[in-house]
Amino acid sequence: MSVPRPGGESWGMPIIEVTGLRKAYGSTTAVDGVDLSVAEGEIFGLLGPNGAGKTTTVECVEGLRVPDAGTVRVAGMDPVADRDRVRALLGAQLQECALPAKLTVREALELYAACYPRPADWRDLAERLGLTGHFHVPFAKLSGGRKQRLFIALALIGAPRVVVLDELTTGLDPHARRETWDLIEDVRDRGVSVLLVTHFMAEAERLCDRVAVMDAGRVVALDTPAGLVRRSARGTVVSFTPSRPLTDAETATLPGVRAVRVRGDGQVTIEGSDSTVEAVVALLARLRVTAHQLRVADGTLEGAYLDLTDAGPGLDSGDETPFETPASAAAAGQA
């Protein structure tokens, strides 16, 4: 079932192209100069903390919002000016939406199929999404997982060339989440491009060909998930909350340290190698300092993500800047 993932250089024509996108709500700038492009046949992830501007970005792609500046193109067309043609080839699932409470699954599928010029076969879609046994259930009586499946079906019902899925698996149990992932891969294997908004690292790592990390309205990194992990230059990371603050002189004795970070609440994060971890434990024992919430982690996409969205300038370890694109300093400290 698996289709070989295209290499970084061989991406086709962009199906979605966003250039210099800006959008503000009153005095709050939600999106501040975003550039990204989703290639035909790609699963493209948009990652970032709450309030990073992910949803606003995809709402501009969907034509639900009019950008203040910049351009958005879907298959070469403007989602606002060419509304009807863009909507005929773009399917979407929204974070917050609903159907009338007493509309049944079957009626919803029939209604939305009628909204498109060349719809997919809704019976086939319902079968793939396991909705066949629930045709007569009204929307309000569906479980969260089934509602989510119905919205996925509605995103695909127009036989789109690209689908935008916003926080698709939020609220699903782990089993349903895995099934949904299989379904997204299946959708891509049928030639549909996917723009996936998520805050689950495992989801991005598993599904996405490329990932853009957003923070404070900007794209702070754009690479393959593996590329992001490689470039994050995080080796082994140990974090803990010491019973008393450690001095710089004390931590300076540790071997192989790349960076030391102390959070406002006292949590210390040290990046280094395996030998650093052993030395940290020995140092704490020697100083008779108790370490609470001791964690040791290998470099992961999650670590790379945290570097990009959470870390202040304190993470910088001399000339070894982990990413080419500068993380917005203003975003530092925002959880």
Partner: peptide, 16 residues
């Protein structure tokens, strides 16, 4: 209610 619950928002994503 349609507007409040997002029924209109969802429909607005279709060519309708």
């Amino acid at each position: 209610g349609y507007r409040e619950q997002g029924v209109l928002r969802r429909l607005a994503l279709t060519p309708v």
